[in-house]
Each structure stands twice: as C-alpha cells, then as structure tokens.
Amino acid sequence: MRGEHVDGRRPGPIQGWPEADYDAALHLLDRQVVTADGRLVGKVDDMELTVQDGVLVPTGLLVGLGALLPRFGTRLGPWLHDRYRQISLSHADRRAPSVIDLDLVEDIGSAVHLTQDRDALLRPRVEHVIAPVRHRLGELLSMRVVPDPSRRTEAWPRRPRVLDVRLAARPDRPGRHAVDALVVGGGHPGGLLGYDRGQVNRPWPVAALVGRLHRRSVLVFCGRGVEVDWEVGEVRVGEAAEVAPLVERGTGPGQDAR
C-alpha cells in the first residue's frame, strides 16, 4: 500500500522526510501506521515529546486508546481515559500507551511507513532510573495561550489556543526535529483542513470561509519569552517572544526560510 510517485513526488504532506519541516497535527497526527510488511498497526493517536537540552523533541508515535482518549477534549478526554483505565487496572498500556520510536519510521507519505514488521511492535516505553521529561503533543494542543499585557495591542485571536506545533529539522542533528514554533489560533473548526496554512486553496467558497475563520492565527516561535506551563496547561507569551502572522507568510513548512 505504499504510495507510488506522482509527478515525481510521493502523495502526502511531507516531502523529503526526514529532512523536511512539518506541522505535527496537520501532517502527522491521526495518520495510518503501516509496517514494513504492509500491515496496518494503528493510527498516530498522539506524539511523544521529550525535553532534550531545553528544547522539545519528538521521539515517538503513541498508539492505542490510552493515547487517543485523552485527546477527546479537556473535560471529556480525561473522563473517558479514567473509565478506560478502570476497566482493567492491571494493564500498564492503559495508563502509558504503546510507543513506536521515531527511529523506526522509514518514510511519511499519506501514511507512516515503518522499517519493522508488526509482531510485538507495540509496547509501552521502559524508562531507565534517570528518565528524561516526556510530554504528549495532545497536552500541548488545545492549551490556552496567555499573551503578556504588553502584547495586547497586537491582533491576537479572541481566545487563543495552541492549534498545532511546527517541527523543524535540526541543523546540528541530521534527521532529527525539534519544536520550532506554535501555531496559535482561535480554536475554530477546520484547523486540520490545510486552508489556514496555504496547503489547499480550493474550492473557493470553502477556502474563503475556513480561511476567514483562521485569519488571525499566528506563529509563536519557541525560545525567548515563550513559556509552556504543563501543570496549569497554558502557554505564556512574553514581551520578548517572536510572533508572526500565519496567513501572510502563506507558505507551508519546508518552504519558509526564516
């Protein structure tokens, strides 16, 4: 079921994996995972982000209901996940979902292709005594964004939330990515259709409508002035943070030279 090349390119949002930049929610989440022998193992239900040298680095694909259910909204999600865990407390993967290491990903086209077969592929991560700090992408998505009072003059979306995460290839570590920027928008429907990022622009009425809903979306570049508070569940954007409008750039990942 591997996609063959059309016009010299593989069907799918990410060209030239693993060197290309991509938007995690738009281009990777909820994609089908396919093993080396062409079997289907599951969806990318969530992504594992690990803190390395102070930056967030994607390290694995999380698969299974234990990863999917928390993404069903801020209130419904945890409730569903609790019920799911209660059904069988003895299963570790209900709490800590199975993870597929990103190193096993061979290519990302319209599906995620792995280098391994599916036998015993899915297992929760076994941590060493000194474990790195790990988060889920799902936690980051839908976090509130709180701009510093000094930034209130800018045109922020009305109730800003993290919609997506832009991952950039790391020049220092070839083939590895790190969280580069947060896509912040008003949480309107249609954020995964690709209209807000210039990926799709037809048919015109749909593009105009969805584009209008997302016209105020911005890119908040990680680094100075941006603080992700995982405990409270909000992102604080300070005075020093670099913010750019998402729409005016009008470019997808991989094309924008910052």
Binding site: P11, G12, P13, G194, Q199, N201, R202
Partner: peptide
C-alpha cells in the same frame, strides 16, 4: 477538501468542473 489538496493528489486535484459540481 482532500480532492483539492495538491500534496495528496498532485496534478490529479479537482478540475473546474469537478469543483463547481462539488460545491
């Protein structure tokens, strides 16, 4: 929407007729 996405369909995206009918 996907039928209009060039990243998925390359040159096989919806043409004008398909889009007028589609909308």
């Amino acid at each position: 929407v996907v039928a209009n996405d060039p990243q998925y369909l390359g040159r096989h995206v919806n043409g004008h007729v398909a889009n007028v009918l589609g909308v």
